[in-house]
Design a protein around this nucleic acid. Structure first.
Lengths: 209, 209
DNA sequence: TTGCAAATGTGAGGGCTGCTCATGTTTATA
DNA sequence: TATAAACATGAGCAGCCCTCACATTTGCAA
């Protein structure tokens, strides 16, 4: 509440801002330990005491940099999102026409799907435990940001269309993309692939007309 | 694990099957108390001790009918789903052509949206805490069941189309419908309405061609 | 009605986990 | 080298889910 300290790169909910390089390293060790534990057994089974132990840090230290367990997970989540956003920005960068957008979007979906399949942390955080309201807010902000990127391209390619409607459409397409990923990794691989393909068809059609 | 007792109407995870009418009443009181507490502060803040107190039942009794906290929530969730499924079955019953399907689907989406907006329990369970893996499985089964209803109608109206593809498409449309509802109630009303409209356009287009 | 077994009800307390805080240690600065 | 501020530590507190040994009620046969 009364924290006036400015957030650094993906250190949103820090209780004490690490000003010495030693503690920067500590924070990284904590996050690495948390990621490893989540990859092993999921964020629900992750115990704060285990995180501290694996990071070779006392629980007290842990709580000096993260106000609670959720904050650790949220920090990891935001790093995942930042990585994803970078992909999207890159992918949409050179788009010149609708055909190009379709191609770029299609490839982006595949890339994202691959990331969801390969990254246990990403899978756990987004497909799994969303108990935290703040995590859902982060998810929402992510969809919004990604939707804005898409909407920008779309409104450039279709200047005659209503910008507001375009924005809603782009937001929804991005959000439903995430939902599709979550669904796809919850079922067997073959069905997941088919569902992702079905999503692509739906989304691409949205770019036409 | 070793429970051979058959599940009754929406009593899936019961530890002891209520054979006396008195205990039926008790179970209903427990569920009503849980629903009320969820409506007030969300399932995350719901304490088992509070549920027992409000239902005028001891905690021990509570745990005779529900193996754990998740089971209470899941039972409530399945009741919601059953209610929703009934709506969908009714809505799709008289459909004779694609135009009729579009109209029925559009109305169904509005009905569902209204339910999400009005029912705090539904909102909490589906948009909120999905910490439980088994809850997500219930969600998935629900989408699948609803998707099957839609796929049946679709394959009747378009006998030439590939049934497998149709099934995937219907499953996805239903699941993304839920995702859209969750999204819509997370933002302000005006934007939520617009997003639901955008979803409808996307979904209806899926029924054509 | 009475007596007995099975079903049902009870709530103090066990166990686990997130988190705090009083105390000790290291670092930066003069 | 002295002093203050930043940083580190881990025993223990608080709170919650759930169990279990014991009490009560119900169904039913004698």
């Amino acid at each position: 509440m009364g924290n006036e300290i400015a957030g650094e790169l993906h250190m949103p909910a820090a209780r004490r801002s690490p000003s010495q390089s030693r503690s920067r390293e500590r924070v990284e060790r904590i996050l690495a330990a948390a990621a490893a534990l989540i990859a092993e057994a999921g964020s629900d089974a992750m115990r704060m005491s285990d995180v501290a132990a694996r990071a070779k840090v006392s629980i007290g230290s842990l709580y000096q940099y993260f106000p609670d367990k959720g904050a650790v997970i949220r920090t990891l989540a935001e790093r995942c999102n930042a990585q994803g956003r970078e992909c999207i920005e890159e992918g949409l960068a050179g788009v010149r026409d609708i055909a190009g957008l379709k191609k770029a979007f299609s490839e982006l979906v595949d890339t994202y799907y691959g990331m969801f399949l390969a990254e246990p942390v990403m899978r756990d955080i987004w497909s799994g435990t969303q108990a935290d309201k703040e995590l859902r807010d982060i998810d929402l902000a992510d969809s919004r940001a990604n939707g804005a990127l898409l909407a920008e391209v779309l409104s450039r390619l279709r200047p005659d269309a209503d910008p507001g409607e375009l924005a809603h459409s782009a937001f929804l397409v991005m959000h439903l993309g995430e939902a599709t990923m979550r669904l796809a990794i919850s079922v067997d691989r073959a069905e997941g692939d088919a569902l992702v393909e079905a999503y692509k068809r739906m989304a691409l059609r949205e770019f036409e007309s």
